[in-house]
Amino acid sequence: MKIRLSASMLAASVVDLKGDIQQLNEACVDFMHIDIMDGHFVPNLTIGPLYVDRVRQLSKAPCDVHLMVENPERFINMFNMQAGERMCFHIEAANHPHRLVQEIKKMGIEAGIAINPGTPLCMIEELLPDIDFVHVLSVNPGFKGQPMVPQTLNKIYRLRKMIDDKGLNVDIEVDGSVQMDNIIQIVEAGATTLVLGPYTCFNKELGGIKPTLAKVKNLLATHFKSN
């Protein structure tokens, strides 16, 4: 299976977003991952629909909107989502996740559910047949550049097995601290989409966006022939 790459816009340049998007277009990422934080569900507050609109105008890749908010049902319709895009919300924040998944699907986009490091898989097991992807946080959400919570790898492995045992086709998107030295393990555990931030996409030490992504793609291609 092809591993898809989603660029985390939280790590993109704030001052010259346009320049970064141009480079991401040239590097052919699969998604633009945009974190929406409300300051209540997570201890940080970020950007919203105006930013998503602008990214959508400039980017070749579809938007991957991650709602880190309380009352996600109030937010899902704010973003003018387009076919080919995806949106996820946190299971911990939703009172009626099954209903919310249906409403997101009604918009003609992929629906996902996000889980924090401390959230057990049983919380989403009943919803797996209804969703397109699970968004697994490997850090506590809110800030870029945190170290990976170590038990995440095992959780991804168990989630992949759970999905396979049910005969379902659900994408596992892993978000948080995806680095050069753990990326192979994350994919081997069962991840099929990777959110790339300061280490594996916007890495100045590796020469910036394009050389960093080239290195990631090369690493994946060497280990997994299909990529």
Binding site: I36, T46, I47
Partner: peptide, 18 residues
Amino acid sequence: MDGQYVPNIVLGTDIVNA
């Protein structure tokens, strides 16, 4: 805006710090 008091979110800590 936090999307809770008003029905929109626009700018966050990163933009203010920048």
